[in-house]
Design a protein around this nucleic acid. Structure first.
Length: 439
RNA sequence: GCCCUGGUAGUAUAGUCCGGUCUAGUAUUAGCGGCUGUCGCCCGCUGGACCCGGGUUCAAAUCCCGGCCAGGGCGCCA
């Protein structure tokens, strides 16, 4: 089939910008055919674009034969341009329709689509992910990523306002940054290199110069973890701040969390209602539970966690029922946390690391960092890591490393919270996990 | 990596426990035809499936074994 050329057409409006008050105006719209309802002498096209949908009404007798025959060949997901007249009407939910004067077919689509884009027969997530490019065109998915976009924008606005500088640290690294998590390795000009699991060491070094930095970017973990809150590739929002401690960055974090919720509630009403999700704007300060208090809480629920152990998921789920929204867990045993988290001066068995929980899910983790070389080397040793492989990082501590603190938010988990989705794959454009490498 | 549950047309499901009635049902999608106000349009017709391999049996979608894949959970992991 011969396609039309876009020629000198340009879009005058998105679908949702066409309103009843524009009655009689000529508009040019681009988008995709979402539905066709053909009643014989009259045919309704639902044109979808990024912002929504609008009905294009084709009365056979009244449109020219060219429009009429062009509309005969249309099928779902054909990409089209429509030039036509806005008509105010009582007969559509939006109060408007467009009567076409000219239709251009810009792309065709296969007749039997792999998923039902109108959503009558919803496909399972795995099937949707296999046809992700098409799946993402569904209104619900567009809503998810608009909310994510709005949240991310709010985060940037907030952090810029607070004087943070956006940075980009390497994804390609020479050795493990944190120990613990497994890294992906690959060939780098005949040397072995790794994909970064975190910007941790770099962002710490940057507080020596830029003082307050943040980074938004993907990181990689070769974990066996196959759960609905883990991905092999995930986007992290990291901050690091000089001359600050955990308490200060926790305050920043709770204000930021509140601001993000407010902003999304304020700007994404349409998307939230598409997703049938409500966001409660949290009050600050968030509840702060110490690790010991968490253990007591759990004991009352007949869950015994020995002091010093990490809290297992099952226990976190119980805790999440007691505290269903945001709360901090502070005063962790030092050895539960990464080597760079600062032990408390008055009691080195516990540390200044914290987690921000959203119910049972860890949304953010952070803390005061160790700022002296000797202590850092000691902690590396205790974690079974070889200080020699951190040589370049440790050297930074010879040049005036100030006290500093920071945290990292998992963007996927944040988006789950904001959209009500229960699987991180749903809020990831092209998720990567142990079993999925495509599309 | 472990545990549980599952895998039936393009999609979503019924049937599986207790083998035969399954020539595999339904909805939707797709193809064709009809219809001038639909908005999950409607009506008629036509297509289209038992994850792969092996076994038991007169007979397997159904039972058994192995594999692959998926969902949930755990462990690992921020």
């Amino acid at each position: 089939m011969k396609l039309d050329l876009i020629g000198d057409w340009f879009r005058t409006h998105y679908s949702v910008d066409v309103t009843p008050s524009m009655d009689g105006e000529e508009v040019t719209l681009f988008g995709w055919v979402r539905e066709i309802r053909d009643l014989g002498g009259i045919r309704f096209l639902i044109l979808q674009d990024r912002e929504g949908t609008i009905q294009v009404t084709i009365l056979r007798k009244e449109v020219g034969s060219e429009v009429s025959s062009k509309s005969d060949i249309l099928q779902k997901r054909y990409s089209i341009g429509v030039k036509g007249t806005v008509k105010k009407t009582e007969m559509t939910p939006r109060g408007v329709e467009v009567v076409p004067k000219e239709i251009k077919v810009l792309a065709t689509a296969t007749p039997q689509l792999p998923i039902d884009i109108a959503g009558k027969t919803p496909a399972k997530l795995d099937v949707r992910l296999d046809a992700r490019a098409l799946d993402l065109s569904q209104e619900k998915n567009i809503a998810i990523f608009k909310i994510q976009h709005t949240a991310l924008n709010a985060i940037r606005v907030f952090l810029f306002e607070k004087g943070f500088i956006e940075v980009h640290t390497p994804r390609i690294i020479a050795s493990a940054t944190e120990g613990g998590a497994a890294l992906f390795s690959f060939d780098y000009f005949k040397r072995k290199a790794f994909l970064a699991q975190s910007p941790q060491l770099y962002k710490e070094q940057l507080v020596m110069s830029l003082e307050k930095v943040f980074e938004v970017g993907p990181f990689f973990r070769a974990e066996e973890s196959h759960t609905r809150i883990h991905s092999s590739e995930f986007v992290s929002i990291d901050i690091e701040q000089a001359f600050a401690d955990a308490e200060e960055v926790m305050k920043l974090l709770e204000w930021l969390t509140q601001y993000v919720c407010e902003t999304v509630v304020g700007r994404c009403q349409k998307e939230l209602s598409t997703l049938k999700h409500k966001i409660k704007v949290p009050e600050v300060p968030f509840r702060r539970l110490t690790y010991d208090e968490v253990l007591h809480n759990l004991k009352r629920e007949n869950i015994e966690v020995p002091w010093g152990e990490d809290i297992p998921t099952t226990a976190l789920r119980t805790l999440g029922k007691i505290h269903p929204y945001f709360f901090f867990i502070t005063d962790w045993p030092t050895h539960c946390k990464a080597f760079y988290i600062k032990p408390r001066d008055d009691n080195p068995t516990i540390c200044e690391g914290f987690d921000l929980m959203w119910s049972w899910i860890e949304l953010v983790s952070g803390g005061t960092r160790i700022a002296t070389k000797e202590l850092l080397i000691k902690r590396l040793g205790e974690k079974g890591l070889n200080p020699e492989s951190f040589r370049h990082h440790l050297q930074a501590f010879d040049y005036g490393m100030p006290p500093h603190a920071g945290w990292a938010i998992g963007l996927g988990r944040l988006t789950m919270m904001l959209t009500g989705k229960r699987n991180i794959r749903e809020v990831t454009l092209y998720p990567r996990d142990k079993f999925r490498l495509t599309p």
